[in-house]
């Protein structure tokens, strides 16, 4: 058995919990925490469906694929999954979605939805990066391509995902400059 694992997931403390050696993060989310919104796709780090956000103690956030990353990588860090982005009330009911989630719905971006949680996390991480460091309007499409280009979608294609993200970036104040 590995040492006890402790982290924060969607602002909730998790652990310390003892897990077997070599447990992948996606199995930890599914089997230990019942957080099944993060999807297992290729299992080889190719499709990026299993992407989550890790907020490190040094203030840097990164996107990480959970199907190829052991739970040890997340030990002591704060993790955000697709279950954690919406606003909730005291009864834990969802009151508002994240603007990226809303845009994906409005643009009919997904069909089967398997890749969606990965797209949501990657796009939210992108928006947060742009909040800190805005980009020129002319660069928006390239920046979206750079961020989402590795994510695989086998149903509705990429145009509607990209269009939704572009919409959010252009409509949100402070993310771009001329």
């Amino acid at each position: 058995m590995s040492q006890n694992i402790k982290m924060t997931i969607n602002d909730q403390p998790v652990g310390p919990v003892e897990v077997p050696d070599g447990l992948m993060m996606i199995d930890f989310l599914h089997e230990y925490l019942n957080l099944t919104g993060t999807k297992f796709g290729c299992g080889a780090g190719v499709c990026h469906a299993c992407t989550v956000i890790v907020d490190k103690s040094n203030g840097v956030s990164e996107v990480v694929r959970t199907c190829i990353s052991g739970v040890e990588r997340f030990n002591g860090h704060a993790v955000r999954t697709v279950e954690g982005h919406a606003e909730r009330n005291d009864k834990n009911e969802i009151t508002a979605l994240n603007p990226i989630q809303t845009a994906f719905l409005e643009h009919f971006s997904f069909q089967c939805g398997w890749c969606t949680s990965g797209f949501v996390n990657e796009a939210i991480a992108l928006v947060e990066r742009l909040e800190k460091k805005p980009i020129a309007v002319n660069d928006v499409e390239q920046v979206i391509e750079d961020a989402l280009g590795d994510h695989v979608c086998r149903c509705t294609g990429y145009v509607k995902y990209y269009a939704a993200v572009k919409d959010v970036i252009l409509k949100t104040e402070g993310l771009t400059h001329s």
Binding site: Q3, G22, M24, A44, G45, S69, G70, V71, E72, R73
Partner: peptide, 14 residues
């Protein structure tokens, strides 16, 4: 060891 399990084992095998 923890670094290997966290960053490498997922692709390169335990």
């Amino acid at each position: 060891y923890k670094l290997y399990m966290g960053y490498c084992a997922g692709c390169h095998g335990q």
